[in-house]
Amino acid sequence: MYNNARGRFLGLLYVAPALLFVLLFTAYPFGQMIWVSFNSWSLITPPKFVGTANYTKAFADKQFWTSLQFTLKYTVLITPILMIGGYALALLVAANTPLRRFARAVIFIPVVIGLGASSLLWYWLFSTDYGLINKLLFDLGLLHKPVFWLGVNADISNWAIIVSVIWKVIGFGMLLFVAAIQGIPSEVTEAALVDGASPWQRMTRITLPLTLRTVLLVTLVSVIGSLLAFDQFYIMTAGQPQNLTATSVFYVYLNSFPYLKLGYGAALSLILAGIILLFTLLQLVLSRRSHA
């Protein structure tokens, strides 16, 4: 239908508002950001062209690598937990019984609240003196001296934040997995039952392969989200201790905002965008293959 010149024109007409919007409010500032990345600019003094100096500086900047490494570590730790946890939850609640419907709704609730609000909430729960987590562990006799969850030890801080983020987003993957599992044609499952396949066999040979596309999609969303992690670290650790929990975007923020090094911040953003683009392409290739 509409497979002609008129169709092309109509299509362009419908896509035009969105295209114009993205050109104006994403592509244009993005272009400016690229230009800024070749300048030294503090906002309060005029920009000065410096060529590729900001990029060469990034590669020699220890903090840039520390941040990138930390961001990757965070991503590598949280993604499998979210995937396996989300999938396990989905298997648990996929059937349409009242209790399972209820559980689905409850597990999804944190997804709809803001990351900022949830981070402030967990910031309080993890607070050394004022938080309920230390209090609870104390009362259960599991602790004898307070744990500094946030901002003192990089690994503990990382895990504390991972816990809070898992609470916040695991429902998202779960819901998509439930849908994918429910979307498996019942004939396929029944045929497997008749053939006497064990639950494990049915899982690995039918359920998982038939939902692989969704798994890859959720992985992609989760990986991109983790590589761009900012709010939770901004609120809960502010990069502490010793900048060891400063994610890449947090470092971009530091340069673009409080340090007033907009050129450097822009260069860091572009490097990061390039890395994310690579991940995305990799995922797309994998996803195409699984589809074929």
Partner: peptide, 13 residues
């Protein structure tokens, strides 16, 4: 496009 750019860096422009 906006998916891969840290929007924090776009805010000032």
């Amino acid at each position: 496009l906006a998916l891969i750019i840290p929007y924090q860096a776009l805010l000032t422009p």
